[in-house]
Design a protein around this nucleic acid. Sequence first.
DNA 1: TATTGTTATACTCTATAACTATA
DNA 2: TATAGTTATAGAGTATAACAATA
Lengths: 149, 149
Amino acid sequence: MKKSCEPKVTTDCNLRQFVGYNMKRAFLTVREDLASVLEPIGLRMTSFSALAVIVENPDISQSRLAEALHIERSGVVVLVDELERAEFIERGRVEGDRRQYALRATPIGEAKWAEAEKAVHAHEDGLFADLTDEERASLKSLLGRVGRK
Amino acid sequence: MKKSCEPKVTTDCNLRQFVGYNMKRAFLTVREDLASVLEPIGLRMTSFSALAVIVENPDISQSRLAEALHIERSGVVVLVDELERAEFIERGRVEGDRRQYALRATPIGEAKWAEAEKAVHAHEDGLFADLTDEERASLKSLLGRVGRK
DNA sequence: TATTGTTATACTCTATAACTATA
DNA sequence: TATAGTTATAGAGTATAACAATA
């Protein structure tokens, strides 16, 4: 039996000692804010990522896009459908191979990408306002080095 | 129309310029490895987190646990059911308030926590092997400062 | 046989809302 | 009325597997 009046304070040192837990919490914070930023622009996190890669790699195929995003080809179909329906990209044909598509951003899609890129920069300026420019660059760099063997 | 022979290389500078994308990728890497480490121990990421908080805060209630983990109370029920079924924790009663439970780790649960804590440290030693101790501490610290206004 | 894109399906994680019992 | 816990449900996000068209 335990006395009532549960204290409202709870410690989580057992979790905070791990980098991974801090990463999870930070990522969920970023994800929530990012979703709210992208929504009025007509993008989700995943379609934003897909558009980013397509803009940077004109005529990329869906399989190559799947590799770049580290998701399955079946998942790409949904994303590409979504972006094509919004007229941000189009499925071009490839000369000499009728199996694959050549994905390209439309002029609308290019403009949408520019708009989204700017909005996401602003979103990060807000979320990382507590960090100096050096700390922010350091965080990005350190994250990019996780998991390499 | 586009010539065939899609190059296998794909750039993702449009995404890598953002801290958030690097964080997502790093987190997914961590999560995948962590899940494989916890599975043989009989824990999932979420039940690991719940056990961590219960061990550190004996007699915590489910509502308070939900706050600590930043999840809904309904989600806690599932986690606590799972940990109780495994006999890692027990639902004690609270003197003076029959609505709430006082969650405590059993001796089995304490031992399980010690085992898991050690395993997760080893998992992080592997995942962050490319970082110096200072860089790893810096990463953890920087992540802990994300999103504060 | 292998690859590209597709569909259907299922699984995980989590949130919402309605409910009960207690306070 | 408010709180603690519970249940049912639904929505993302993603993975798996089987398939048709093409190479």
